[in-house]
């Protein structure tokens, strides 16, 4: 899989940055505007899928190596569970208790700010990492497979 023509390579090398930034924007502002961890994570994954389609599999593996991707996947899941457990052990809380909101923002002075809403932005970041890494790994696994005798022309 050598990748596509020079035009597509040049344009996708410009556009991948914009897609990546848009994904990060959607994740960070997820508690104020439409979007959130799910949509932003899928957008981040699709920027890497664009690199994979335009440049070929080897370049994309150099860009985001598979061990790092699987570690990001695990880091997202662990971060989400860590947030939940902090809520359980910090104060008289319960699982997924929004302890930051109750301790610091309870009077509502930070409403509609970027730093507000307690654990929700942190959970958004965790879910975004998780979804992006998982979908990248799935599509990478689908694209690496080539049958033995039935030769694909990709």
């Amino acid at each position: 899989m050598k990748g596509m023509s020079i035009i597509i390579k040049t344009i996708s090398s410009w556009i991948k940055i914009l897609i990546f930034l848009f994904g990060i924007y959607i994740i960070i502002f997820g508690h104020l505007t439409p979007g959130g961890g799910f949509a932003g994570g899928v957008i981040l994954a699709s920027s890497y899928v664009l690199i994979m389609l335009a440049y070929g599999r080897d370049y994309s593996e150099k860009n985001l190596p598979l061990p790092i991707a699987s570690k990001l996947d695990s880091a997202g899941a662990l971060m989400f569970i860590a947030i939940a457990l902090f809520g359980l052990f910090y104060g008289a809380g319960s699982f997924f208790w929004n302890f930051i909101q109750v301790k610091f923002f309870a009077d509502g002075h930070a409403a509609f700010d970027l730093v507000s809403a307690g654990t929700i932005p942190l959970s958004n970041i965790a879910i975004g990492l998780k979804v992006a890494a998982s979908l990248f790994l799935v599509i990478f696994a689908l694209s690496t497979f080539r049958p033995a005798e039935n030769n694909d022309k990709e």
Partner: peptide, 14 residues
């Protein structure tokens, strides 16, 4: 209760 203006986000994450 959660401080999030996006109520859907508040429901799925809190």
């Amino acid at each position: 209760k959660t401080g999030a203006a996006n109520i859907v986000s508040a429901v799925i994450l809190d």
